[in-house]
Nucleic acid binder design. Sequence first.
DNA 1: CCATACTTACTTACTTGTTAGTAAGTGGAT
DNA 2: ATCCACTTACTAACAAGTAAGTAAGTATGG
Lengths: 219, 219
Amino acid sequence: MSQATPPRSRRVPRAERREEILAAAARVFGSKGYRAGSLAEVAEQVGITHAGVLHHFGSKDRLLWEVLEYRDRVDVEHLEGQHIPGGLELFRHLVTTARRNADRRGIVQAYTVLTGEAVTDGHPAADRARTRFGVLREDIASALRTVADERGVDLAEQDAVRAASAVIGVMDGLQTQWLLDPEVVDLAESTAFAIEAILRAVLPGVEPLPDSPGASGAP
Amino acid sequence: MSQATPPRSRRVPRAERREEILAAAARVFGSKGYRAGSLAEVAEQVGITHAGVLHHFGSKDRLLWEVLEYRDRVDVEHLEGQHIPGGLELFRHLVTTARRNADRRGIVQAYTVLTGEAVTDGHPAADRARTRFGVLREDIASALRTVADERGVDLAEQDAVRAASAVIGVMDGLQTQWLLDPEVVDLAESTAFAIEAILRAVLPGVEPLPDSPGASGAP
DNA sequence: CCATACTTACTTACTTGTTAGTAAGTGGAT
DNA sequence: ATCCACTTACTAACAAGTAAGTAAGTATGG
């Protein structure tokens, strides 16, 4: 038998190869976690050796770091230049995201696994997770304040932050349950239900949230 | 500080030693995760070698399994024979638990880390996590049905399960945020807020939830 | 009440496997 | 002629699990 490696197009230009590696690493770290996922497995998926991966990224920690940057970049690209919405629109966007996520198990798993791991002692992604949550909370709290303002509702600062934390929390927590038992937990519906419940607690009489535009049939 | 492993009393009887090991393993797996935590570290905390740990538990997988059993056992013991409450009392209990958890970072971290890891491919605790969530959901859904019944409120089966999932989800998700940023996220208050919001969504006009008896001022 | 037989709780030493990381070289494309 | 993407070949650390031995304890028979 000639070679174990089928005629892999060798000599891929740097930028392209890096993208390949990042995509593979996102898959591996996403399904096994950072500590349990190995450079060798990432390398194999790209058709090179683990030393090849290190040639491009220097260390495993740095690879993780760049995977997270990459994922953020891809996520934002998907919004096609349209800025993250504010006001009620943000909550519609969150529900739509949950609906889309129900068809992207891999991404959800990656996010859940990595976030869970980030709370272990000395994890390299802890800082990132912390600031990410912080920014998200602020975005959501601010959207709540906007809506409350528009409607002349009095919204205590404490309640804005608590509601924001709760919205993020319930989205994450439902993802975990859904990953373990997708037949029983309906990610999209449960998330919509919970977000509406929390919204109504701070913004009495808010109307139901239809999905964001464009997300009806197949993605 | 702690110990430099003083002349460890050797020859500890089986039952006692097993408890020591289980406690140590709960700490190690809780802070580092199962895959990243090593038998050697568990052993060291007890003052024996990793082979000694294997003498008692056979394999790392079995040790994890027994740690989980142990934790459930201890958690239930704490309830001192009093059965898990139903009806509205259950939700008061959940809020009280969140309040107590804010003083038990280690336990919360263990739970969060292990649950996050459990959604990785082929994790030995996946089944356990799945059934645990299933039982919890059923308990909470059933409590909701009880209260709805008492008050003559119509509660769709779907909504009962969605609300139950949401309650569990928000508790877990808030724990993660709190672990990363305890100064910003108030575990007890955010949890209480979210649970009340979800309750009001299915049981209109439910009154606020005071804590379970005994927990009023500073714990 | 003591010796012998056995069990238990380990240790030491090892095997086997896996990991991240390094150093030096190779071969293809410009 | 050189750059550079990569491989081969290695190291050092660490992992779980195994095997064999040893000391401490328990039961038994005389």
